[in-house]
C-alpha cells in the first residue's frame, strides 16, 4: 500500500515539475532549431541542433556588451546596496529605539510605490545630471529599489545574533570596526550572502527601469530582449536564442544558491 502511494506521489511530482519547467525547456530547444523547425506543426521534439541562432544574435546585437552591462550593474548595485544597508540594519538591530519598527515599515512602503508613478521625475532628474543610458545611472536606481528589502533582510538576520556576544566584545574594548569585523561579519555572513544573492537576481531581471532609462550604451539584457519583441517577434528561433542567453546565467546561478535565496526572501521569518 505504502509503496503504491510512493509511486503515485513520485509520478505526480515529476509530472507537475516537468509541466512547470516545460516552457523553459521549450525555449531552450527552440533556440537550437532553424526558424522553419521552430514553427513546424506538429512541434518537433527531435532535430539536428544548430548554433546558427546564437552566432546571428551576437553578430547582430552584440550580446556580450549587454551581458557585460547586466553583470556590472547587478554586481555594483549589490555591493553599493550592502554598503548602505548593512550599517543601517546593524544600527536598527542593536540600537533599537521606539521608532525602529516605524522606520522599517516606512522603508518597505517606498518599495510599494510603483516605478511608473515616479518615472517622469526620475527621467527629468537623470537628464539634468546626464545619467541617462549610463551604467552608473542604472546602478543607482537598482540600488535604491532594492535597498528597503536589503535592510529588512539584514535586520532580521542581525537581530538573531546573540546580544551577549556583542556586549562581551564591547566590554573588552572593541571598536565599532572590530565589532563589525570580528563579530557581525562571521556570524552574519549567511545573511549577507543571502541578501547579496537575492539582489543580484532582482537587479539582473529588472526590466522596467532598464527599458526606460537605457538603450544602446548601458542597456542590460532585458533591453536586448525587448528589442526582439516587436519587429523580430516572428523569428522565434533567434528570439529564443537571445532569451536563453539572457536567462541561462541567472537560472544556473539560482539553482546553486536556492537555499540561501529562500532564506533571504522570507526575511528570516520562516525557518
Amino acid at each position: 500500500m505504502d509503496k503504491t502511494l510512493l509511486w503515485v506521489r513520485t509520478g505526480a511530482a515529476w509530472l507537475v515539475a516537468l509541466l512547470i519547467f516545460f516552457p523553459i525547456l521549450w525555449l531552450g530547444m527552440t533556440a537550437f532549431k532553424t526558424e522553419l523547425q521552430a514553427i513546424s506543426v506538429p512541434p518537433k521534439f527531435f532535430f539536428t541542433p544548430t548554433l546558427e541562432n546564437f552566432i546571428e544574435v551576437q553578430s547582430r546585437s552584440d550580446y556580450l556588451l549587454y551581458a557585460k552591462n547586466s553583470l556590472i550593474t547587478s554586481v555594483a548595485s549589490t555591493l553599493l546596496g550592502l554598503l548602505i544597508a548593512a550599517p543601517a540594519a546593524y544600527s536598527m538591530a542593536f540600537f533599537q529605539t521606539r521608532r525602529t519598527k516605524d522606520l522599517l515599515v516606512w522603508m518597505l512602503s517606498t518599495k510599494m510605490m510603483p516605478a511608473v508613478g515616479v518615472l517622469i521625475p526620475v527621467y527629468v532628474v537623470y537628464q539634468q545630471f546626464q545619467l541617462l543610458d549610463t551604467r552608473l545611472g542604472l546602478t543607482i536606481i537598482f540600488t535604491m529599489s532594492n535597498l528597503p528589502i536589503m535592510v529588512w533582510m539584514l535586520y532580521s538576520y542581525f537581530k538573531d545574533i546573540p546580544r551577549e556576544i556583542l556586549e562581551a566584545a564591547r566590554m573588552d574594548g572593541a571598536t565599532l570596526y572590530d565589532e563589525f569585523r570580528h563579530v557581525i561579519l562571521p556570524l552574519g555572513i549567511g545573511g549577507l550572502a543571502s541578501t547579496a544573492l537575492l539582489c543580484l537576481v532582482l537587479s539582473w531581471n529588472e526590466s522596467f527601469w532598464s527599458l526606460n532609462l537605457s538603450s544602446a550604451k548601458a542597456g542590460t539584457l532585458a533591453t536586448l530582449i525587448a528589442s526582439y519583441s516587436s519587429p523580430e517577434g516572428l523569428f522565434w528561433a533567434k528570439l529564443s536564442a537571445a532569451s536563453l542567453m539572457a536567462i541561462a546565467p541567472i537560472i544556473v546561478f539560482g539553482w546553486f544558491c536556492q537555499k540561501q535565496l529562500v532564506q533571504g526572501l522570507t526575511f528570516g521569518a520562516v525557518k
Binding site: 512547470i20 519547467f21 516552457p23 523553459i24 525555449l27 537576481v201 539582473w204 531581471n205 526590466s207 527599458l211 539584457l221 532585458a222 530582449i225 525587448a226 519583441s229 532569451s243 539572457a246 536567462i247 541567472i250 537560472i251 546561478f253 539560482g254 539553482w255
Partner: peptide, 9 residues
C-alpha cells in the same frame, strides 16, 4: 526555475 526568468523573457 521560472522564478529566475526575467519578466521580458
Amino acid at each position: 526555475s521560472p522564478f529566475f526568468v526575467m519578466p521580458a523573457v
